[in-house]
Design a protein around this nucleic acid. Structure first.
Lengths: 195, 195
DNA sequence: AGTATTATATCGACCGGTCTAGATACTAAT
DNA sequence: ATTAGTATCTAGACCGGTCGATATAATACT
């Protein structure tokens, strides 16, 4: 209840470092391939600290990392959308930003949560739920922009599903092929559809 | 070169069993979470046999499983397409078949190779290449159908990328949400676009 | 006899997780 | 204002279990 200030500040800092490190590793290699030792080493902290901040172990840490990465991308989507004139430009801008990030990571980045979603959806209800929530938050952002562009609520939600699905799929294809082509194709096809 | 017949037949049979078992496990839990012990146990074979058939170990076995699953889905796509009157019906039929398979697996199935593609694209050139080849073979099948529907080669290839991307993405969203909604939305939106 | 295949035992390395000890910093009583 | 007390957080050793991989022997077939 009565919480000490400075002790918590330092503690919260290393907690955030754990989350950020984990999010990056999960994005690149998924859940099962990311060991706690690797997380601890990359965070520059001992293993005991990790289990102080995340008593639930790897799963709780991953859940926090997924939530963090989900919120971060949701904000990034909102930022891109805010500086776009029309719906087509908004989607194109989002895809371009994702394509740039993917290439910058030498095709190791991609969606920050898709890998974990696929790996753990069947076995971890917690992670399944967290990934689903992140996807939903992105869908909400896209659908809101589509509604602002004149679509009805139902149509906007349906179309947002197409847009996000196409982007997620294109990120997979681009990563497997080490080629931004799929993202460009999706951008152009969606531009036609949205026009 | 001179290969014995019956010994190889029995050997080839267990080789196929390894591949089929591995393909199923990779689809459901990915590469890193699937142990060789699990594969061996599910195959009903000893571990020594596995390393006789796949001296390259886990990676070679996974590559064979990916190739097998890729060819199998390519054939399934061709089958669905063959019994569809127009392009829109062909795509809708494919999505319906995938949605049915996903629900039948209690949302554990999905794309047989996407998880491995995301997990290992950055670390295993062999698996990256194999997953990319499988995606390409599906793209070819879809593009061929689109060309038969009247599109030019370039437009068909671009649109096939959108179609496959949207399907792959919808499979992720559906799995994370345990809900066929994303697949249905993509089917309906694509039907409009293709009409 | 000779090769192909199976079968099992075992390897070192690393897995996620737990434990205890110690350092740090804020609280509260005097 | 000092200091004893307490909660927070760090630190690293350590656990049983499982990982992918290998070695060697036995079996089946030509």
């Amino acid at each position: 209840m009565t919480e000490t200030a400075t002790a918590r500040r330092s503690g919260a800092a290393s907690r955030e470092r754990f989350i950020a490190t984990t999010a990056r590793l999960l994005q690149r290699q998924g859940y099962a391939a990311t060991g706690l030792s690797e997380i601890v080493a990359a965070s520059g902290a001992p293993k005991g600290s990790l289990y102080f901040h995340f008593p639930g172990g790897k799963e709780e840490l991953a859940a926090a990392a997924i939530a963090s990465a989900g919120a971060q991308l949701r904000d990034a989507i909102a930022t891109v959308f805010a500086s776009a004139d029309d719906v087509a430009a908004a989607i194109a801008g989002l895809i371009d930003a994702l394509a740039a990030g993917l290439a910058a990571s030498d095709y190791r980045g991609g969606c920050p949560i898709a890998t974990v979603a696929l790996e753990r959806a069947g076995d971890s209800p917690l992670l399944r739920e967290r990934t689903a929530q992140a996807f939903d938050s992105w869908l909400d952002a896209i659908a809101a922009r589509l509604r602002a562009g004149g679509l009805s609520r139902a149509r906007a939600e349906r179309r947002a599903l197409l847009v996000l699905s196409a982007i997620e799929g294109a990120l997979i294809l681009a990563r497997a092929g080490r080629d931004p082509g799929p993202l460009q194709a999706v951008r152009e096809e969606l531009a036609e559809l949205l026009a």
